[in-house]
Design a protein around this nucleic acid. Structure first.
Length: 498
RNA sequence: GCGCCUGUAGCUCAGCUGGUAGAGCAACGGACUUUUAAUCCGUAGGUCUAGGGUUCGAAUCCCUACGGGCGCACCA
């Protein structure tokens, strides 16, 4: 806050800034600096650069002064490099400038390449310029920034001082890029569909509500792009995908952030089998990009992503791991009795879906460490999936579990408009019975299906969870740059309208 | 929403059954012309998250609030 009393350290640094300005060297007036090399390039190509002059720029992250000679490390996006300053070379005035430079400052330096006595590749600085003054002290170099609250709130500091954090987000970006490359190569089209929707569909979740003033209507932040992407299949795109945020107004945990990133892929003339192969391919592409191997360490275990992955139906899994009598799981009343009989928690708001989910979490999930397709979900909990032709009580659907966690969900898409309308109506009955997350009716979506949608396979993968897996991160907050936290004091905007 | 843990200097942490706050790093001053967690000497730095209470006396014990972590519930 501007009215806070400035701390002593900041006051000292402001004084240095004033001194620089007085010398006509106000760093904040500088607009560019021409680098010749990045730090990592220099180290890599030292053989040809030795003795040559280079210009580098970055943040000063350490300093070892030794009287008439000073060593610093400067860090740019590629890595770090040592700078060597010597009184005899720089002269009194330039060497004296070092007094005005602090750890954290952004500096440009020019000089020839050499190796110090201890063998470190360094720039023998002939000229340097402070390009931006850092007024706040950085956390300590040795222990870094550990306070998780500060790490999430001030991610910029976390990124400066904790290199593995930077590495995680670089890997995230490269994984997403690898997925795009894979899909683009298969002639999928990346599209963008509405974030603000009048009917929040495509998943079972509570939405965020927002308001459009000019139209004077409430809109919902999307909980999934699914129904719009399938409209595009109707429209003839045949292969589409979207990588973007979904918003769900639910609890926050190590596995849940209110906004999270999903990829959804739809392919016409493809079915569940095709989605299984595509899912495996996407995981493989991301893993090879991020780790260069399909044997990935996760929280002490080793996950083998080599296809083909294990397959097991939902009910097989319940019978196998929990000795659950799955014949009782086709309607709510008997499922409820079964759960009560087995001592499994039955919430007041429980639905058939949540009961099956509870049983699954209780008995099965923890066992699914290696990647596994769980298939054949009941139709009652899969309102957008096509029925199995051999048993209409079940759908052609799978979810992927790795390390006890759901990472993907896919089905052969329901393209029969008559059945789809019926399923929505069933959902409306659930809603009337108190299921807040029952899928709403979407008349326009049914209308789209009435024009005819080819048989289509669809796949959704939670990108954040995939990144967690491939970066060995325990919390979703470690793979989201700015995870949702309660606002800091003074950060809440007071409602000034009315 | 519930339970457990947690909040001390810019950062990382000590501070025992209550006696009014300490280290390392960072900072500031000094020495040091190839260091790398540089070293050595010196200096400064705190409404102990906030507000109540108990007490002669509270960072410490109690209550409340706020923030954060983990687990549960909800969900992906």
């Amino acid at each position: 806050m501007a009215d806070d009393i400035l701390h002593e350290i900041m006051e000292q640094r402001l004084e240095k800034l004033r001194e620089l300005s007085a010398q006509g060297r106000n760093p904040f007036e500088i607009t560019r600096y021409d680098r010749t090399h990045l730090a990592a390039e220099i180290v890599e190509r030292y053989g040809e650069l030795e003795g040559k002059t280079v210009k580098v720029a970055g943040r000063i992250i350490s300093r070892r002064g030794q009287g008439k000679v000073t060593f610093c490390h400067v860090e740019d996006r590629s890595g770090r490099l040592q700078l060597f300053f010597r009184f005899d070379d720089l002269g009194e005035e330039a060497y004296g400038q070092l007094k005005l430079m602090d750890i954290g400052d952004i500096v440009g330096a020019e000089g020839h390449m050499f190796t110090t006595r201890t063998g470190e590749i360094s720039v023998h600085v002939a000229r340097f310029t402070i390009l931006a003054k850092s007024l706040r002290p950085l956390p300590e170099k040795w222990h870094g920034l550990k306070d998780v609250e500060l790490r999430y709130r001030q991610r910029y500091v976390d990124l400066i001082v904790n290199p593995e954090v930077r590495e995680t987000f670089v890997m995230r970006s490269r994984m997403v890029s690898a997925i795009r490359t894979l899909l683009d190569g298969k002639q999928f089209l990346e599209v963008e569909t509405p974030m603000m929707q009048a009917v929040p569909g495509g998943a079972a979740a509570r939405p965020f509500i927002t308001h459009h003033n000019a139209l004077d209507i409430d809109l919902y932040l999307r909980i999934a792009p699914e129904l719009y992407l399938k409209r595009l299949i109707v429209g003839g795109f045949e292969r589409v995908y979207e990588i973007n945020r979904n918003f769900r107004n639910e609890g926050i945990s190590t596995k849940h952030n209110p906004e999270f990133t999903m990829i959804e892929v739809y392919e016409a003339y493809a079915n569940l089998e095709d989605m299984m192969r595509l899912c495996e391919e996407i995981f493989v592409a991301a893993a090879l990009q991020a780790r260069g191997t399909l044997q990935v360490p996760y929280q002490g275990a080793t996950i083998d992503l080599t296809p083909p992955w294990k397959r097991m139906s939902l009910f097989e899994a319940l019978e196998h791991y929990g000795q659950v009598d799955t014949s009782k799981l086709l309607d709510f009343a008997s499922a409820k009795r079964l759960c009560q009989g087995m001592g499994v928690h039955v919430d007041e708001r429980a639905t058939l879906s949540t009961l099956i989910n509870n049983l699954f979490e209780e008995f099965v999930e923890e066992h699914l460490v290696q990647p596994t397709f769980i298939t054949d979900f009941p139709t009652a909990i899969s309102p957008l999936a096509k029925r199995r032709s051999d048993n209409p009580e079940f759908t052609e659907r799978f979810e992927v579990f790795v390390s006890g966690r759901e990472l993907a969900n896919a089905f052969s898409e329901l393209n029969d408009p008559i059945d789809q309308r019926q399923r929505f109506e069933d959902q409306l009955r659930d809603k009337a019975a108190g299921d807040e997350e029952a899928h709403p009716m979407d008349e326009d979506y049914v209308r789209a299906l009435e024009y005819g949608m080819p048989p289509t396979g669809g796949l959704g993968i939670g990108i954040d969870r995939l990144v967690m897996l491939l970066t060995d991160s325990a919390s979703i907050r470690d793979v989201i740059l700015f995870p949702q936290l309660k606002p800091e004091k003074g950060e809440v905007i007071e409602d000034e309208e009315a």
